[in-house]
Structure formats: structure tokens, C-alpha cells
Design a protein around this nucleic acid. Structure first.
Lengths: 218, 218
DNA sequence: CCGCGAGTGTCACTCGGTGTCAAGGCGCTA
DNA sequence: TAGCGCCTTGACACCGAGTGACACTCGCGG
């Protein structure tokens, strides 16, 4: 919905370009995210209660749930914008581009955000590791991915002039792209950030390309 | 773990082939499943409490959780055996068979269980529809699928003599197969059982085959 | 200065899920 | 037949996630 959570340092406009109330709201959200991230990565997802997170951020439990729909949400939000980013990136690709290249680019963008160390620090890596290793978080993440897949599928169908109601290709292609995305994320997480997301993505799409580009509308 | 939930009518051995205690246990589980299925499909997942389900089956809430790990579990179990079935089927395919054919067969088996009306009635269809349309159930289902994917991936790696630690192919191929599985299930659900799972599966694997069979171990 | 609305804390409540304990039935053995 | 484990169950207490209702307090515009 709003800006990515790890871009909490955006303070290009110190003046009242936005209302004070909105800035306060953003501040609380950041504080909550910060506290949640610190506690959850340190002690594990189940070992920390929402009460504790809220207290750490200096608000009440009730307020926590006014900002996040669930305990999982505060972490999964780290990846939430990636999804919409993927679809937007796909929509921005030139029309003539073959699906494999377009999808590869669309998936690459959010992954490069992960790949660049320094700017965001290890935050994205820790978030991904926490998500992939915590069943409850993993489930929510997969739920999000399913939503992304629907969006990607629709975008692909429009792009290629296919009917998603009768043609399985858009649905499958979107699924393949997200399979690649998930595989890359997993490798990156397991290697503790050592693996290069861009290289992995290229490798994955090299495998998928024959199916993605053999797009013969039966 | 045990027999598929919709084979509750297996009573080929009335004698004490198994202990009475075990049969009692099975009876309670079936009763619970039955009650859960009836109530949840009728009133929706969130509108029914575990207490109600347990009471309907004539046991206590505590007993419910001795049989099922969660409220979602009682429904998702309908598909649980499909996953292990997929892997077993893959292991049973001849070694020389190309991956696309082997995976297609592996995925087909559990789907034909769905396709055959009459024997199991509409039970599988209703279960799938409930799962795909209830966020909480959908999330659990995706979690299961992720487990299946790991198993499939390992099986594929062993089958093709590839190293799953360095080679993305097994992971991606397993993901593609399950993408097809999910897509077919979705279509079948949306068409209210009118679509033919076997035909859909064939269609899906026709799309995926070029990638699945272009297996050049770099 | 006053009123309005947004954000918040508090309280009470529902529900999913778990640990504990005592009671009851079944099978085995003396 | 009496006794002894084993397994299953119900009852109870408890925790934590999440929600609804209400009252309070700010910042802002009139």
C-alpha cells in the first residue's frame, strides 16, 4: 500500500508537505516494524507476543492491530510491495519482447533490491530467512504469491491477447515465473546472501524459457 | 498417513483384523471429518467453531485436537494423501521416461481420483472448492504443496542424477508440475466439476514439456 | 474558544490451541 | 475373578491472537 518498509529513511521533505498526523502515523508504523523485526529475528516468531512488540514500540496491542492485519503481516509486508512491483514491471516491458525475457525482467527488479547490500543492510535477507523458516510466515507468503500470480496471469493474458478463461498458458507462465522467484529466494536465503540473485534468476529462466516462449495459441 | 478420508466406507474386514481400539479411533475420526465437512461447507469456515464441530460429532473440543492439528487440518487432509501419492507415482515411473511424461503421470493419478464421480460423490469437489475459496484453508494447502515440492524435487534429482544443491532444475521442474496441478485443480473447481481433469492436465503439460524435457545438465 | 475528527488506550470478549489431571474401558496375567 | 497397565476421553485452566465498544486526547479549522 505505502512505501516499502525498508525505505523508512525517506525524509526528503521535512516540511509539512504531508500533514503532521500522517507523519505521526508513519512514525508509529516504522517503530512497530522496527520493534517486531528486532524481537522476532532475535527470539523467533512464536516466542514473541504481539503485546511485547507493541510494548517495545510504546503502544498498545490494540494499536498494533490498527496498523497490521495480523502478527504475520508486519513481517510479510517486507515483501508485499515486491508483488505489485513485479506486475508493474511486466506491464512496462515492450510489447514485442518474448515472454521469457519480459517475465525475467519483471521478477528481477524486486530481487535486485535484495541483492544490493549496504543500502538496506541485511534487513531483506533476515526477513526472507525468517519467512522461509517460519511455517506461519511461509504460509502467508505463499498466500501473497498466489495473489501476485493472479495479477501476473491477467497482465500476461492482456499482453498476449489470450483468453485466461480458456487458455491455460497465462496461468502457467505466471506460475513458472513465481516458481523461479521462489527458488531464487530460497537459494539466496540458504546461502546467507552469498549467492547472486541476478545470476540465479538468469539460470532459472534459462530452464523455463523453452516453455515460456513456445507460445503457440492452440 | 492413513487411508484417504473419503474411503470411509472400507469395511471389508468386520472381524478383529485390527484391534477394536483402532477401529474405534477410526470411527471417531470419520465422525469428526463428516461433521466438519457438513458444517463447514454449509455455513462457511469462519462461521463454525471447533466446539460446534466436536459437539456435532459427540466428542469434546479437546478430542478434536487429538485427531487434527488444527481446524484447517480436518479439511486439508482430504488432499494430504495426494501429495505423497504424487511422489510415489513418480518413483514408480520407468527410468527412461522423459521428465514431462513421468511428472504428468505422477500428477494425473491423484487428479483422476477427483475426476471419477459416483464413487466418492461430490465430496472431493466440495472440499477443493472450500479450500480454494477460504483464505485460511488455501494458505494451509499451499503449505502442503510446498512440502510436496521438496519431495518431488528430491525424487527428480535422484532420478536424473542431478545435484539439487547446485542445480536449479529439479526444484523448478517440481514447481512447474505443481503449478500445473494447481491450475488444473482451480479450473476444475471453477467449472463445478464440469471440466475434465485429465484433459486439462494433458493441456498443461503440453505447455510445460519444452522446458521439462530440455534437460541439458549445464 | 469551540467543535470536530482522527488516533489511541482500556476493557471485555470470542475463539483456536495446549497442558494437566482424573476417570473409565480394554487387554493381559496370575 | 481380581489386579494391573495402557490408551482414550472429558473437564478445567490457561495462553495468545484478534475484535468490538467506549471514552479520552490531541491537532486543526471555524
Amino acid at each position: 500500500m505505502t512505501s516499502p518498509a525498508w525505505r523508512y529513511d525517506r525524509r526528503v521533505t521535512p516540511g509539512p508537505a504531508v500533514s503532521l498526523a500522517q507523519r505521526k502515523r508513519q512514525l508509529v508504523e516504522d517503530e512497530l516494524t522496527e520493534a517486531a523485526f528486532r524481537l522476532l529475528t532475535a527470539q523467533g516468531f512464536d516466542a514473541v507476543t504481539v503485546d511485547t512488540i507493541a510494548a517495545e514500540a510504546g503502544v498498545s496491542k490494540r494499536t498494533f492491530f490498527r496498523y497490521f492485519a495480523s502478527k504475520e503481516d508486519v513481517i510479510v509486508r517486507f515483501l508485499a510491495d515486491l508483488g505489485s512491483g513485479i506486475r508493474a514491471e511486466l506491464a512496462a516491458r515492450p510489447a514485442g519482447e518474448p515472454p521469457s525475457a519480459a517475465l525475467r525482467q519483471a521478477v528481477s527488479v524486486p530481487l535486485t533490491v535484495c541483492g544490493t547490500h549496504g543500502e538496506h543492510g541485511e534487513r531483506p535477507l533476515r526477513a526472507v530467512q525468517l519467512i522461509l523458516r517460519t511455517p506461519a510466515l511461509h504460509a502467508r507468503f505463499l498466500e501473497r504469491q498466489a495473489e501476485w500470480r493472479e495479477g501476473l496471469s491477467a497482465e500476461l493474458a492482456a499482453r498476449l491477447g489470450r483468453d485466461p478463461a480458456t487458455d491455460l498458458y497465462p496461468r502457467l507462465a505466471a506460475g513458472m515465473a513465481l516458481t523461479a522467484f521462489g527458488a531464487v529466494l530460497e537459494r539466496w536465503s540458504d546461502s546467507d546472501g552469498a549467492a547472486d540473485p541476478a545470476a540465479l534468476t538468469a539460470e532459472a529462466f534459462a530452464v523455463l524459457a523453452p516453455a515460456l516462449d513456445a507460445a503457440a495459441p492452440s
